[in-house]
Write a protein that binds this DNA or RNA. Sequence first.
DNA 1: CGTCCTATTGAACAGATTCAATTACCGTGG
DNA 2: CCACGGTAATTGAATCTGTTCAATAGGACG
Lengths: 239, 239
Amino acid sequence: MLTVTRHENLPADHPCAGCEIRMRTFCSVLDASELEKFRCQGSTGRLDPGRPLFHQGDPADVIFNLTKGSLRLYKLLPDGRRQVTGFLFPGAFLGLAVRDVHAFSAEAIEPVEVCRYSRSRFDAFVDEHPRMERELYRIAAHELALAREQLVLLGRKTANERLATFLLTLLKRMREHEPGADLIRLPMSRLDIADYLGLTKETVSRVFTAFKTTGLIRLLSDDQVLVLDCAKLECVANG
Amino acid sequence: MLTVTRHENLPADHPCAGCEIRMRTFCSVLDASELEKFRCQGSTGRLDPGRPLFHQGDPADVIFNLTKGSLRLYKLLPDGRRQVTGFLFPGAFLGLAVRDVHAFSAEAIEPVEVCRYSRSRFDAFVDEHPRMERELYRIAAHELALAREQLVLLGRKTANERLATFLLTLLKRMREHEPGADLIRLPMSRLDIADYLGLTKETVSRVFTAFKTTGLIRLLSDDQVLVLDCAKLECVANG
DNA sequence: CGTCCTATTGAACAGATTCAATTACCGTGG
DNA sequence: CCACGGTAATTGAATCTGTTCAATAGGACG
């Protein structure tokens, strides 16, 4: 979602003080010591894989900074069909719903650590710091652009194109941290990927196999993908 | 997208002065006479059906208030596949891209009238009126929520569910203006609907026929749908 | 009344799903 | 160290939903 940066000015006892990632989103407005003001009591949270951080419909009175692990965000249909709307990685903020309840659920994919902040105190801060509004707007507008790209993927792309696009997005994210990287880690299951791409886990698996066969990727393990031919993958991604 | 309201304080020579709809979005901050400050020279625009207001990639230096008619917003894949990301109706604002170029194209569906405003003057105004930022954020967050609902539709719903959901959305919009209404006008073609719902025009047509056959709707004409059984339509929409 | 465009309908087809079976992997305990 | 059990991933075959391509019908307009 957004690039991250090292933080330098957190109190030593801060739960995030040991982790090297830090949300850059608010950096222009909010440094880490400012952020500190909104910390909740018992501000650190740990989640085992599969555990929910919150569910759709839960009151959105806390905001989170994901400091370790990864999350899936999803919506459910009444009969249980699931659409994963996104994956979050360390550095991401979540819980910034406009409504007072969450519009989707958030679950840990791997062991997760989050920092909790008081929503009401954060809101009050925003009231007093108008430039924060601009930051929030920027974030929402960025997410909106991403969501619309995903509309194109879900509405018009084939299974091959979907998975290729997905892998390239992850690769691009990797390369923001580590230029030239070609190894993608997939903490999420095939089912998660399928529910993100509007496919079934079987189809995702078959497309992985097809990409292996055609020399686009190599699977080092279920969750480690080596991108062998990035250019060709981009061709596949865009039809 | 957003409810509209009458305007009372526009100059008599304003191109929007004759139309009864007005964007309510900025009402808490911006009244119509304020908005007036951002008007461009030759601020009224008219568009014939099928004509573009702007294309993906065009510089986003003007913002528009749609005062008459309707627009489709869409993105294209290199090979011409199209995903319609939304339809806009009178009262809608558009052109508020964060980037300096548009991320999608906008075309008239019916004869359209827009009011043009200077983007740079508007931006300057926003700089001076922090509460505008909040308004912009609210809008973006709302659109984001809608886009995510559409992700569920495209990723996980069947053709029947998609069309039922679409008709209900339009009906709900109608009923905000006119409670109890059961007649939907469809200014867009079957192809537009198909490209919005991730289907083909043939499938859309077939589902319309199926809905007619099962007594859910009646087609008064190609672009007039009478909803006969709203409750049952809702059942279809949610699986 | 004829033309043009859109919508509808039909029939064959295709891509993805479903259901079922097999394989691979990982941690546990003998 | 290896056998075992459980979970996730892969593969196969049949099926199905929606697409594609083609033909027909319907409406608006000159």
